[in-house]
Design a protein around this nucleic acid. Sequence first.
DNA 1: ACAGCATTGTTGTCACTAGCTACATTGTCG
DNA 2: CGACAATGTAGCTAGTGACAACAATGCTGT
Lengths: 200, 200
Amino acid sequence: MTDVAERRYHHGNLREALLDRAAAIVAERGAADLSLREIARDVGVSHAAPRRHFPDRQALLDALALHGFERLGAELAAAARAGGRSAFRTRLRRCAAAYVRFATQDAALLELMFAGKHREPDGPLHDAADAAFATVVAVIAAGQEAGELRPGDPAEAAMVLFATLQGLASMLTGGMLDGTTPEAAVRTSVDALLDGLRPR
Amino acid sequence: MTDVAERRYHHGNLREALLDRAAAIVAERGAADLSLREIARDVGVSHAAPRRHFPDRQALLDALALHGFERLGAELAAAARAGGRSAFRTRLRRCAAAYVRFATQDAALLELMFAGKHREPDGPLHDAADAAFATVVAVIAAGQEAGELRPGDPAEAAMVLFATLQGLASMLTGGMLDGTTPEAAVRTSVDALLDGLRPR
DNA sequence: ACAGCATTGTTGTCACTAGCTACATTGTCG
DNA sequence: CGACAATGTAGCTAGTGACAACAATGCTGT
């Protein structure tokens, strides 16, 4: 079945094939030893072929990051949708769990997504990031309107929430929380954020 | 003055010189393009000389990470000491600010410290990390005894705190919080964590 | 139908890196 | 003072990213 595709001079879908293979390698071995030549070999193409689609290594990494934001946005949106009629705390936990799941399962990809972002404040990566997080910000805004959260800028509360989840994911992938399950850690963190560490 | 040292066959302090130069390079350009040969050139030694002190690139990175934990621990301890007689909230803010300062000023080093950690659960890096965080855990325990925090495992509260600070630092270095100063972000986060996002 | 052209591959090369082995120099200790 | 361990050097291999020149392919306008 693939014989035909592999034989002809034009691959037909090289860009996608390169991205797929690159994503797999990043997922298993991290972005550091991602080699353009290795990907080209795996896909069955000459070492310089990727150049037509990605002028340099960074361009490929950027494309991976962009795709990552799209996937993350979709998963966060799905989590927000799924808990649409639940209590606010439940919805928020669901979103938080979705984020931490993504961040731990695809830790190297997430690192890539964050690493590339700080270069251009107005690039497509920034827009993609904003879009990805938008649904969760909306959940927070809804919580404020329902009186479940203190009123204020939803972006500020979202900042604290994402910071916590991002750090939690860091610690999980770093092996610093081997004693607990990710689910328990997420629950503890979200509850601590909502209720506060002080006695009420 | 350095003429003598540079001329003789034995460098005299090559290991330290290599670490210093490596730390500087990591700080300015990140750990990714740290080249043993470049460091050797900069220090004025042949390209294979570092091998006597660091068998491979990773060994040098590990040494850098270890040194980083020692510095971080010292700064956290200093922050905890400085606010010794202040109100609990003030002491905690001070520690938080110290951590975020370290994490943002030496972002690449911190990444290195966390990245290397998940390989050996009982290695020297783990011990160094525990030691670095110990003083802040002690501050939290003191807060619990003083009734400023809900009673419980101080390590659990510390987990949420460090997760938040770690994530905050990520977002700051990622350029996602350009609108606010680091100090303001730290204050907002610590207060949110103590008081909770819910109305009281 | 087909000539011309942009696209998308290929091969070849350069400069660089990490890691290795063999060898040279130095300081130290018996 | 001679042997030896520590520490440095030179040279090699294999792999990489970037680039340039060239070849195959398929599309497009006449």
